[in-house]
Design a protein around this nucleic acid. Sequence first.
DNA 1: GTCTATAGTCCGATAGAC
DNA 2: GTCTATCGGACTATAGAC
Lengths: 191, 191
Amino acid sequence: MGRWEPNTPGRLAEAALELYSERGYEQTTVAEIAKRAGLTERTFFRHYADKREVLFSGSGDLEKLIVRAVADAPEGAAPIDAVALGLDAVSEFFADRRDFARRRQAVITANAELQERELIKLASLSAALADTLRRRGVTEPAASLAAEAGVAVFKVGFERWIDAAENAEGRDMAQLVREALTEFRAVAAGR
Amino acid sequence: MGRWEPNTPGRLAEAALELYSERGYEQTTVAEIAKRAGLTERTFFRHYADKREVLFSGSGDLEKLIVRAVADAPEGAAPIDAVALGLDAVSEFFADRRDFARRRQAVITANAELQERELIKLASLSAALADTLRRRGVTEPAASLAAEAGVAVFKVGFERWIDAAENAEGRDMAQLVREALTEFRAVAAGR
DNA sequence: GTCTATAGTCCGATAGAC
DNA sequence: GTCTATCGGACTATAGAC
């Protein structure tokens, strides 16, 4: 057995989510998070650049996942259809994490600073998506617009999934996201 | 003549933009901004909630402008067409502010914290837009999707306008935004 | 206008893993 | 020995409290 308990970043993230939920983000100090995880303040900052980042460590994985799905779309697929495949991958990613996602989203919704961080993560996702589309030969500004469209559709679908009643089993995230995409197409067509 | 120089918030904003441009956002302290404007640090925080906000004081006006244009759209107009009218109003707002907009955007682009703040301002704009559409009878999620589409189109058009060469007189912002909207419709239609 | 808490950085020390 | 993760303390600036 090692000198340290394993999975330091994970313990810090869990402690942070607990404390942010219990007493709010602003009322929680980094020292308290570290203490609950059995570590010091200094160690927290070695794993996370700041107090917000501890809630967003999963966003890199999500980005890789969606980028791969879009890159692997059939060659002739229209940009928006390639993006739709990326959205399916995202839904799969979240499928068995709904309880965690809800706890986390409740904390974020309650604090403007955390919302800012979430928005820049989504902007990073959009940029990665646009980049992947460009590699597929999509020109600007179509690539950026398709990517932004994808993120907008994701946001709407995700929000409905989070808000859905516990027992609404039939409405999984993939379905809600697909419905949002259909609605999006109608809106863009001027209906 | 009054006891103080007039237009305190404006002087602080100008001093901040100058210093952020000269030496970078992070390398500038609030005390320095206040000093350049002939004021104290404490006064800065009475006018602006934080060091970032000083670059975003115009966003409230912009929001009101676009909301009014959308609210005033013809009754039968489709959501996306109402949003397009809002975008025209935005272009007008920026028309004679290009030099300022470029300086400001260069500072924002160079710093992640400022980008976060910009994104939450755009999210606020999107929310106001969606709210206006709902007042016009547009249901969810169409209202949110049309609003997000409008912001995405604005972003693309604005970026092209900022990046355009100084002497590209023929390409004003309104035109670039309209082109982005056309491209957006094509992307959503699966082309 | 002064005072203070806390975020976040920098320096170095330590100690197990390899 | 080298690498990496921990900890301790001092320090600055933001931002809020009084």
